[in-house]
């Protein structure tokens, strides 16, 4: 049973990013097989040099670094979304992998459940 969690929201303007991360961590804690795909504005979550203490928020990119500790090993990002937004500097993550449109189609087709947030 494979779950695909698709993130589409930027990190701080709404609570969507945080809530999606909570779902991922909860699923991983209960030993579910879950992958996260960052597409569209969610790619902004992966940018390096974020200092959200200026707006009294927690740094979401630090939480992303902790994902492997919870057994979440497949963290994917849509390369086209990164390129169209001019995002060059990504936060360091041992599990983050860039993928193309055709890979995304395969992942959607092979997952048992897809959650889009």
């Amino acid at each position: 049973m494979h779950i695909l969690l698709v993130q589409q929201s930027a990190p701080y303007g709404s609570s969507h990013a945080k809530e999606a991360l909570d779902i991922a961590l909860t699923a991983a804690t209960f030993e579910q097989d879950i992958s996260i795909l960052f597409t569209g504005d969610a790619c902004y979550q992966l940018m390096s040099n974020q200092f959200p203490e200026h707006i009294d928020q927690k740094n979401i990119s630090h939480m992303l670094k902790a994902l492997p500790i919870y057994g979440l090993e497949e963290v994917l990002v849509d390369e086209d979304s990164l390129n169209s937004r001019g995002i060059v500097n990504l936060t360091d993550s041992p599990v983050l992998k860039k993928i193309t449109k055709s890979d995304i189609k395969k992942i959607y087709q092979s997952a048992d459940t897809v959650i889009r947030l």
Binding site: Y12, M47, S48, F51, E53, H54, I55, Q57
Partner: peptide, 10 residues
Amino acid sequence: KEDALARGIA
């Protein structure tokens, strides 16, 4: 400035 720094915009 605050919103730019928070989000990693140089």
